[in-house]
Design a protein around this nucleic acid. Structure first.
Lengths: 212, 212
DNA sequence: CCGCATCCGGGGCGATACTG
DNA sequence: CAGTATCGCCCCGGATGCGG
């Protein structure tokens, strides 16, 4: 991208991360520390492969992303954020927070969705209201690969992979599942919206923002 | 700009403010509450007039910017941020903070500069170390119209207009003046870098981050 | 299959000129 | 002062190819 040619910190930032898709690539690398090229493609529906390759090269040159050759069992190159790249997370979160009202409106026709994008609302809205019950986890599916939201010692955790032995499994369309996570919907309301829950329901209410 | 088509808060944000020049327009409107079209053009060197008009239309449609017909003495339309637009300021500041290291390196050849862009570093780095001395202000010039940095009751203020009766006037190239504001340079060092100071020097040291 | 490189078409963007 | 109009280019989207 062409530089703005302005001696201003904001313009300098946008010179590096202001072009199309760039911040979304940072999002994916923040959600999953070690990402392969194909992981990124799956998490970035709509991006073209040439553009992804070009952006990764630019971000590497800028010192935001590092490329590593993974150890033998994996035998592939992985991408990860550098320290400087992780410094972008506050900006990433501020931009994300601003978009929440658009999420409340629900998806537009044709909008893609990924379970792992629940990471931000999970960490922002959920709380562990019953740390004394010991660690637990629930599995969430909104169409693609399941993700795992956990509670342990009062902290809420997020893992973009399936749970082992989840206490509960929640599945449904993104808008309704998000409604549960943000507290905009009760479990009963979400059931009417087509959300299904298997297992121990209390593992979910334990995390909900409005739970007693 | 084309939508990313992702049901994700970050993607939704970028659908609105992710296109070129948009965040810089928000920056200008944040620096000066009521901006005329030509004010914006002056603060956005490099933007073309058609693109500025188009962006303002888009931002107005998105509810981020409001267009008002100014009261009779001015007789012109002014642009300002809406409440929703002001909600972008945290994201703006986070992005700005990330670019500070590039400022430390100094401007690239051809970089434009505006005094009012000092607002962020002024508010981020300066402190009022002597509120008991009463209100004061200094005028800063780095090439274009002067701006005013003030201290009052322990707060640092910024006004993108000339001071009335400034206690001191500081002028020089952007990099050196910025060095003073961030504490990376002492007044003596900046003088060697070509910065000139007129008036009461203590009005400046009162504000510097490393001052005793 | 993974990680790209290449080619092509369209639209966002840059530059200039012009107008109410 | 506050834009509109026009043209050209390059970034980006879409498809395919290709070496490891």
């Amino acid at each position: 991208m062409k530089s703005y040619g302005q001696y201003c910190a904001l313009a300098k930032t946008l010179d590096v991360v202001g072009s199309r898709w760039t911040m979304l690539i940072i999002r994916e690398l923040n959600l999953q520390e070690q990402s392969r090229y194909t992981d990124l493609r799956r998490g970035l529906p709509g991006i073209t492969t040439n553009l992804l390759a070009e952006r990764l090269r630019e971000l590497e040159a800028a010192g935001v992303v590092a490329r590593r050759v993974a150890p033998p069992p994996i035998a592939t190159t992985v991408f990860e954020l550098t320290e400087r790249g992780r410094d972008l997370v506050p900006a990433l979160e501020a931009l994300t927070a601003w978009g929440v009202p658009y999420m409340v409106e629900g998806p537009k026709p044709g909008d893609e969705y990924r379970s792992r994008w629940l990471a931000w609302p999970a960490r922002a809205f959920l709380e562990d209201h019953a740390p004394e019950d010991g660690p637990t986890s629930i599995e969430v599916r909104v169409g693609d690969d399941p993700v795992s939201i956990g509670a342990e010692d009062g902290h809420v955790t997020f893992d973009p992979h399936p749970s082992e032995e989840p206490a509960a499994i929640i599945a449904g369309d993104p808008h309704a599942v998000l409604g549960i996570l943000t507290g905009a919907m009760t479990l009963e309301q979400s059931r009417e919206a087509g959300v299904t829950v298997e297992g121990d329901v209390s593992a979910i209410t334990r995390l909900q923002p409005n739970a007693a």
